[in-house]
């Protein structure tokens, strides 16, 4: 039994359990945080009744959603329809494997960490299309088609921005990238790439001002119009977990992962730095959501193809030239 305890297998199983628990609790906390932030920005309180400061509100919503009946529209594609929410939620979990929480707290420090995260995050688009198309509802179809076009358009500048960082560190391993930011964070070295990354990340997770696929005022609820009960709950949790992953990657790529600013750690452990920075970024994403109106669909496309991609390409070329000269 002892050898099993120290073996690689045991470490993986414990890691998996921790990841599942952490991502679920985190998603619930983020839903509560978003409603509180939105409330106070709009001069109202947000959830307050259930539990202290309304903390149990999201759990109560979860129980309600689990209790709700799973309605399947009669003309829906009954093979793809129940599978779509699971398809959306599953790849998002994989992203947690390689996130650099602390120097030795990475579950699987793969040397292709960055690639793995973006490969699986591209998978959610397929699931959204499956969900939208299979619910056989015009609004859902429109929402799904829009989300495919949007994610394709914003995947490219996202990767180009990340590429310019990877170019500087010439390694795809997260721990390498974070260690390389010992003295100065990459956000000061690569401000343009950081800005592009944040904008495209908001678009990637379908968050306002880019939430065209589930634009409440136009497409009623976009691709998850027909989903009810825990199926809608899965879509909802996937969105918030995705938001956490995207800001976690941003902290590790641009804001120096588990390191304090300019090298001095002030004695605070690595993981506290990492989570603090991630939650600040998440707050910024929420803050943006409750301030700006929504972009129209073709403006969204123009912004990406005509402005983001050229800018990120130029940034990449400049980085390459500067690296060549030094």
């Amino acid at each position: 039994m002892g050898s099993f305890m120290a073996s690689e297998w045991f470490r993986l199983i414990v890691g998996l359990v921790i990841v599942l628990a952490f991502s679920q609790l985190n998603a619930l906390f983020l839903v509560w945080l978003e409603r509180k932030v939105a409330g106070h920005i709009q001069l109202r309180i947000g959830p307050k009744e259930v539990g202290p400061f309304g903390l149990l509100q999201t759990i109560a919503d979860g129980i309600k959603l689990v209790g709700k009946e799973l309605i399947t529209p009669r003309s829906a594609d009954n093979k793809l329809f129940p599978v779509a929410p699971v398809l959306v939620f599953m790849p998002v979990l994989v992203g947690f494997l390689v996130l650099p929480f602390a120097p030795h707290l990475i579950i699987r420090d793969m040397n292709v960490g960055v690639l793995l995260i973006f490969a699986f995050s591209a998978f959610t688009v397929l699931a959204i299309l499956a969900g939208g198309w299979s619910s056989n509802n015009k609004y859902a179809l429109l929402g799904a088609i829009r989300s495919v076009a949007q994610n394709v358009a914003y995947e490219i500048p996202l990767l180009l921005a990340v590429l310019s960082v990877v170019l500087m560190v010439n390694s795809l391993q997260f721990s390498e990238i974070v260690k390389a930011q010992g003295r100065v964070w990459f956000v000061f070295v690569q401000p343009v790439a950081a800005l592009i990354y944040l904008i495209c990340a908001t678009a990637e997770t379908n968050r306002a001002p880019f939430d065209i696929p589930e634009a409440e005022s136009e497409l009623v609820a976009g691709f998850h119009t027909e989903f009810s009960g825990m199926r809608f709950g899965l879509f909802f949790l996937a969105e918030y977990t995705n938001m956490f992953i995207v800001s976690a990657v941003a902290t590790s790529l641009f804001f120096g992962g588990w390191q304090g600013p300019f090298g001095f750690d002030l004695g605070i452990p690595g993981i506290v730095w990492f989570l603090a920075k991630t939650y600040v970024l998440i707050f910024v994403i929420m803050w943006v959501r409750w301030t700006f109106p929504r972009l129209r669909f073709d403006q969204l496309m123009n912004l990406s193809w005509k402005f983001m991609i050229p800018l990120s390409l130029a940034n990449l070329i400049v980085t390459a030239i500067v690296l060549k000269l030094i």
Binding site: A38, Q42, L43, W290, T291, P293, R294
Partner: peptide, 16 residues
Amino acid sequence: YVMDLGGFTPFLYAFD
């Protein structure tokens, strides 16, 4: 009107 365009917050300020 601003809520139709996607901005939810001005709605609350106007109603205030």
